[in-house]
Structures are given as structure tokens and as C-alpha cells.
Computed example of a mutant assay.
Amino acid sequence: MADIMTAAMIVIGDEILSGRTKDRNIGHLADVMTAIGIDLKEVRIVPDEEDEIVAAVNALRARYAYVFTTGGIGPTHDDITADSVAKAFGVPCEYDPASYALLAAHYAGRGLEFNAARKRMARMPRGAVAIDNPVSVAPGFRIGNVHVMAGVPAIFQAMLDNVVPTLETGQKLVSATIHCPFGEGIIGGPLGEIQKAHPETIIGSYPKYLDGSFWTELVVRARSPEALEAARAAVQALVDSLEQPTA
């Protein structure tokens, strides 16, 4: 098992950038990646523009172990993700025979025409491998380290369930949370010194506001339980040493 595996996500769609559609996939992917020991390091949201998709795919697939894309693989003219990913890899985008047959049978079974628009959903870059879609049949695909999936949350989640068993995972992060009754302005300096003294950990500071008072949730993360406990104890000692200001 590798020590650290990394991933990035590309969310594709003008509707996301305009606010017309609210993304629900980023949080789900982050939860799943954290649970299986893959660090989601970056998320980009790009429009339905070929050059932007190509640039994002090429930048992120070179930087991270895995890239996941959502959106733009439907039947309409603005669903250009398959063509764009093919261009990023320098290969043709063409009908996948197995996916074509699967979709043809699906629409025939429903008594619907397998028209040109629906046939578009069987297209993928040459050399890609289909990702099963148990919700609405039309597949996603994987090429290299790039996994291309639907933007509809239920379909994305179902596709991701099929992808996860194929991924190489890393050592999972463990975490501890410390309640701090003070605002960040009080603890910021000494907390930074603790972080420097424990470089193998990640110490997060999350300000909260409730009933007219500020407080802070401190979260320590590490891959080693021993490193986690050492940093957690230092942070707890800092919190215990401070006095609540009277003004």
C-alpha cells in the first residue's frame, strides 16, 4: 500500500459556474477519498469549453495519481467532455462497440429510438475503458489515470462506487478534535509554533460563532497515531494554558 495517493477533480459545466446548478459531487468525492486513504488535493470548475477542459485535464493528470471529472457526457451538443478528453490524450473520440450495443438494447427495450443524440453517449476516447452506470445505463469511461463520470449526483455516486475498488489507496489520515473556547486571534501565534514543531501533522483551525461568542475548533490530522497524539497533546496543553480574556 502506498504511503500517499493523491487525486484531483474537474467539475465541468456552465450551469455550475452560473449558479443555475448547485454542485453536490465535490463533497461526496472528498468524503469517499478521505475514507479510502486518497488525498483530494485540488478541484477545478471549468466551463463547457474544449480548450479549458483540455488544459485542466492535462495539468491535473500530470500532477496527481487520479483525476475525476463530472459533467458533460450526456446526449446534447454542449456535452463535449468525451471529445475534450480525447483531445487531451491525442486520440480519436469514437463509438465504443460494447457501450453502443448496451445503449441500443436499452432503448429498444424501452421502445425508444436510438437516435443520433443518444448514440453520442456511447462515444469515448480510443483505448478508454467503460465505467458502468447502474442508474441510467449510459457509461462513463477511464483513460489513463482520468475517470470521466456523469454530473447527475445519483449517477456520479453509483459510477464512483464501481471505480473505488480499482483504485490504489494510501495510508489513511487519523484525526483528533480539540475544542478551544478562544478566538483565532488568541491562539494563532502559538498554534503556528506547534505546527512547525510537528511537521508530520496537519493542524486546522476553524472559527465558530455562537450566541455572541467566538470559539475555535482545532483539528489535528496525521498518518501516524503517535504523531497525532504528540501534536494533539501539545495543542490541548496550549488551550489549557490560556485564560479567557475579560474584555
Rank of each mutant, 00 (worst) to 15 (best):
Tyr107Lys: 00
Asn162Trp: 09
Ala154Arg: 09
Leu160Ser: 12
Ile155Ser: 00
Glu94Cys: 04
Val85Lys: 05
Gly109Leu: 05
Gly170Ile: 08
Ile194Lys: 05
Gly140Ser: 07
Glu193Ala: 14
Arg142Asn: 12
Pro199Ser: 03
Ile143Ser: 09
Lys119Pro: 02
Leu103Asn: 02
Val146Ile: 14
Ala197Val: 12
Met121Glu: 04
His198Thr: 13
Glu94Arg: 05
Ala104Val: 01
Pro134Asp: 14
Ala105Val: 09
Thr169Lys: 03
Glu94Asp: 07
Ile202Glu: 15
Ser99Asp: 11
Thr76Val: 06
Leu160Met: 09
Ile187Asp: 00
Phe89Tyr: 14
Thr201Met: 00
Arg118Ser: 01
Ser175Trp: 12
Val85Phe: 04
Gly151Asn: 02
Asp132Thr: 15
Ser175Asp: 13
Ala130Lys: 14
Arg123Phe: 02
Gly189Trp: 13
Ser99Ala: 15
Cys180Asp: 12
Pro181Asp: 13
Met159Gln: 15
Asp161Pro: 09
Thr76Asp: 04
Glu193Gln: 15
Gly90Asp: 09
Gly204Tyr: 08
Asp132Met: 10
Thr166Trp: 02
Val163Arg: 05
Ala197Trp: 04
Ile131Cys: 02
Arg120Cys: 00
Thr177Ile: 15
Ala101Asn: 13
Pro199His: 10
Pro153Arg: 10
Leu167Thr: 01
Gly140Ala: 03
Glu193Ser: 12
Val174Ala: 07
Ala82Pro: 13
Tyr95Val: 12
Ala128Val: 09
Ala130Pro: 11
Ala150Phe: 04
Gly204Ile: 06
Ile178Thr: 11
Met159Pro: 08
Lys119Phe: 03
Gly170Thr: 00
Ile203Tyr: 14
Pro190Ala: 11
Ala105Gln: 13
